[in-house]
Design a protein around this nucleic acid. Structure first.
Lengths: 209, 209
DNA sequence: CGACGTATACTCGCGAACGAGTATCAGGAT
DNA sequence: ATCCTGATACTCGTTCGCGAGTATACGTCG
């Protein structure tokens, strides 16, 4: 059980018993699907797993017309406890999460510096668009929704802004030419392959793990 | 092929032909395993996939004593192209990645505000520790490694710092009592369950997707 | 009034990922 | 001389996620 969709399900069904499809609708309406990166294909699997672990229990199964049966679940005491524990853990324990951008940066040297600069400019433009859009959405939402239910969005925005500003400053070093070793770096890419003596330099002083 | 371990493999074997275990050693030595969130159980699967796609080719297979056979791979032209394309994509295209913390925050209301504050304090402490450690590591590394190979670490640090500072400011609002709706929120948790009329408020104005 | 889109509600099977296991060898400690 | 630890090098089986598919009902537009 480390699929975050499970958390969204628990947080939704805690309100009142309901069937999976209704959970999905509510999760979507509250925008939790974004926060959890939900893939709907896993919904029924996840719900069944939660039941297997005793966090949900079947309340009843009803049938309506020729529709398939709907199974209505309710949360158990264990489920409520799990919901709280899960939330506690996610909030209190920072974990090194892998970011695609970081991965990209860590192989950034395989591209010539000027191309890299172009890519970063592109990223920055998209980031800025996204930031304005999100900021606008937040401002709209604040009129109807208490801030309590918007903190995740505020957090996301803050992180995005930090990323944008980091990219901007890196980009400035690249375009101003003040980034150390720029010429050398450009030279490898102009004249074929990277010299192996440089590769050795890539080994970093790794003390902590 | 969207396992980042594959990117690390390509970025390593581009230097010279080698066998999988050697790739693993190099990837670890260069600290790329952190950036990519590598699980070593997938190494051989990933290498075989890269070969299947024509990005790697078998150079030779040697046997040494009673050790299992070692298969030595080299990168192909297609592989080099894929490496560059992959890097380009990761760098230029920002993507909404799901963060555990954000998920936690988005169900933060299931915890009473004072407990949440405690958890955030704990997170902040751990974050601060981590930040100092990383900063120190970076400073050490900078003495031996060109900055070009440290940008990912600089980026990571910047993001961490932004997170810490967001948490700090949220925490201040909570402890100073200036967070809107604090009393109401506290009241639900003291007196049983969350009133359903509040749940309705959680639906946010969702325009963009 | 029929046809087409969209919401409702759920199932299935492939396939990637990865934890755990296996087996050999080198070198230092006892 | 033998034990043990840690590095070398790779395999396997299970689990889980999830994309794609299925089938009915409802509304609406021409």
């Amino acid at each position: 059980m480390n699929n975050l969709l499970g958390l969204a399900v628990l947080a939704t069904v805690v309100e009142r018993p309901m069937h999976p499809y209704e959970m999905a609708t509510l999760i979507r309406a509250r925008g939790k699907d974004r926060d959890m990166g939900v893939k709907w294909g896993s919904l029924y699997t996840v719900v069944r797993n939660l039941e297997r672990h005793g966090f949900l229990a079947v309340e009843e199964t009803v049938r309506q017309g020729a529709h398939p049966e709907r199974t209505i679940y309710r949360i158990t005491d264990a489920g409520r406890a799990e919901l709280a524990d899960w939330a506690r853990d996610l909030i209190a324990t920072p974990e090194r999460e892998q970011s695609r951008f970081q991965a990209g940066l860590s192989v950034g040297a395989v591209l010539p510096p000027d191309e890299l600069a172009g890519l970063l400019r592109r990223r920055l433009a998209l980031l800025d668009e996204d930031i304005t859009a999100q900021r606008e959405m937040l401002d709209t939402a604040r009129r109807e929704v208490p801030r309590l239910f918007l903190v995740e969005a505020e957090y996301e925005l803050a992180v995005r802004e930090a990323e944008a500003s980091w990219v901007r400053s890196f980009l400035e070093e690249l375009t101003a030419g003040s980034f150390p070793g720029l010429d050398l770096w450009r030279a490898w890419h102009e004249s074929g392959r990277m010299p192996p003596e440089v590769a050795e330099l890539a080994e970093r002083g790794r003390t902590t793990d």
